[in-house]
């Protein structure tokens, strides 16, 4: 288990990195934290021709407040940094809650926020959260930049709209309105292991304790994170009673997800726990919104 050869570039600025990616085109691959990529390279499942290492580009690592009360997170910010950032904890405590589930501490120290999202692992927590929060993704290419909504970023398992000569540069998290609650729950066989199913919700209540807005994402039960449409249809404008939440869970798990049977869980089991997790996630999120 030793990686195959590759060409290696370690630009020290963003411009230099973009130049290199443009030059390499299809052959180039960004090396961020490398916590998934290098493992795949060691197995020789991944054999990139050339790596553009972003670890020497300090300008890609930051957590900055935005004007409207949100945060902008540079792609190379380590997950551990995000997890332990006071501003993140204050504005988006969901991220702190989620981070504990991402692999193990040593992986989070090195793994990056943007790298995990761009990896788009169907069992990855951060890609799902990017969809859930509809983070605005800044995608850069030499001389160009574009913004993509988080919910449009992922197009397949391990696949995003980011082209080989592009990179995910920044993620902007919009501030949550008042009376917003959240909850991430997952079932995995062991701590730090891949989720068999996970559900995260962000809900907002109006002044009458009726559901004003709800976003719910289901993870590891399809090829990509699934952003529930039904949750909104059923909940918005209604009081989130136990019965309504149970109905959402029922509808979502029977109509919106497509879990697979694998070595660790059957599709049926996944469906059954997703229903449970949906209830737990929504119930706690509404509780927190109060």
């Amino acid at each position: 288990m030793k990686p195959a050869k590759f060409d290696y570039y370690a630009p020290s600025s963003l411009d230099e990195a973009l130049d290199k990616l443009a030059e390499l085109g299809y052959d180039g691959k960004v090396l961020a934290g490398g916590q998934s990529l290098v493992a795949a390279m060691n197995f020789r499942m991944a054999r990139p021709t050339a790596l553009v290492d972003l670890n020497n580009v300090p300008e890609l690592s930051y957590i900055k407040p935005t004007e409207d009360g949100g945060l902008a997170i540079g792609t190379m910010t380590r997950v551990f940094t995000v997890e332990n950032n006071a501003e993140v904890a204050k504005r988006f405590p969901l991220l702190v809650e989620v981070a504990k589930y991402i692999a193990h501490p040593q992986i989070r120290r090195r793994g990056t926020f943007g790298g995990a999202i761009a990896h788009a692992d169907p069992a990855g927590q951060l890609p799902s959260i990017a969809v859930l929060m509809n983070m605005k993704a800044l995608i850069r290419r030499k001389g160009e930049e574009r913004w993509v909504d988080g919910q449009d970023l992922i197009i397949g398992p391990f696949m995003t709209v980011i082209e080989p000569d592009e990179m995910l540069a920044e993620l902007v998290l919009n501030a949550w309105p008042a009376r917003t609650g959240y909850k991430y729950v997952q079932v995995s066989r062991q701590s730090g292991g891949y989720a068999q199913s996970a559900v995260a919700s962000i809900v907002t209540l109006d002044e009458n304790d009726k559901c004003k807005d709800v976003r719910m994402v289901l993870m590891s039960v399809g090829e990509v994170p699934i952003l529930s449409q039904k949750a909104g249809e059923i909940l918005i404008g209604n009081t989130p009673t136990r019965e309504v939440i149970a109905e959402v869970a029922e509808v979502v798990t029977s109509e919106e997800i497509d879990p697979a049977t694998d070595l660790h869980a059957t599709a049926d089991y996944r469906r059954s726990i997703t229903r449970v997790l949906a209830v737990r996630s929504l119930t706690e999120a509404f509780e927190r919104a109060k």
Binding site: F43, M45, P122, A123, G156, P157, Y194, A260, D262
Partner: peptide, 21 residues
């Protein structure tokens, strides 16, 4: 081979998505 022995987690979803494409 390697795909089967260590890539198990990805095979199913990747295959499904390839069919789709």
């Amino acid at each position: 081979g390697t795909l089967a022995s260590v890539g198990q987690r990805m095979i199913d979803s990747v295959a499904k998505s390839m069919f789709k494409t």
